[in-house]
Design a protein around this nucleic acid. Structure first.
Lengths: 147, 147
DNA sequence: CCTGTTTTCTGGAATGAGTCAAGAAAACCG
DNA sequence: CGGTTTTCTTGACTCATTCCAGAAAACAGG
């Protein structure tokens, strides 16, 4: 699953050292949005051979800090990552199979729920998660992932 | 911190057996909204003596299934619980200290971000989390809880 | 291109929230 | 009061994630 995606320039632009694990992780996340750490580890190993689990965790943390990837953690799920960081989109999560898809947020309505009575908080982000069932799970008997 | 809150009738109304652990857990969650499991365990033990950790987990699951409490899991935080289940409110989370406060959602604007292009999902809930800094942390040097 | 400095990666052990399972103990029904 | 069913206890266990110390790689300067 080769992609024309070029990880190296992105890493350099972010002032991050270019290493094989980093290129592989960034590419894997780009090619498989919403993947969890474990599947990223497997894809990275398939791509460049042995890589320690720790390295992947470190890389994901570095990439997240550099805003090259974004970490999403829906309730009841492990951490997942995506490279779509430029725009502000939200997520749709299937309660049954855990599948996640992006939903564009119509431009103007960004923080449409302004925190009235914000208790003095300085709000910098409004995160929206839509919960429901994906088409496939909707027509199957309820599997009940009790969450 | 005795409260006039009566857990027993709520349990009965939900067709749940009334046990000391259940009453204690429900009361603790009511009195300390957004508490995590560990602090609930400690409060319950302070209230009624020895209770197994497992019992608290079981009770919280039962109460959640019965919709007497709601479980919230902001990214980077352990599970937290609240008894405010009737209305639909959102949460404001401090990036620094993890503190959570409720924000009322103005009536009409419920799922104001209608999932346009919903990929065929059957959406049943829109969850909104506002991220920022609480007043106390806002005026302190950045503690950086890197999440 | 070689060397030193800094950052990253390896390997292995550890942490901690949460779960599983089997039997003992309570609740509730009549 | 029994009998049934549900809940609680105990203790082992899973699994994502983190910590640590040393080895290896990347980059900057010569």
């Amino acid at each position: 699953m080769r992609s024309a995606f070029e990880a190296e320039p992105l890493l350099r632009a972010a002032a991050l050292r270019v290493t094989r694990p980093r290129v592989a992780v960034l590419t894997a996340v780009h090619d498989h949005p919403h993947a969890d750490t474990d599947s990223i580890v497997r894809r990275v190993r398939a791509a460049i051979g042995d890589v320690s689990t720790q390295a992947v965790y470190d890389v994901l943390r570095a990439l997240t800090a550099a805003r090259l990837v974004r970490c999403i953690e829906p309730a009841g799920s492990v951490a997942r990552y995506e490279t779509r960081v430029a725009d502000h989109h939200d997520h749709l999560v299937c309660r049954s199979c855990g599948d996640i898809v992006d939903v564009d947020r119509a431009a103007g309505e960004a923080p449409c729920l302004t925190a009235t009575g914000d208790h003095g908080f300085t709000v910098d982000e409004a995160e929206v998660v839509f919960w429901g069932l994906c088409p496939a799970c909707a027509r199957l008997p309820p599997v009940d992932r009790n969450r």
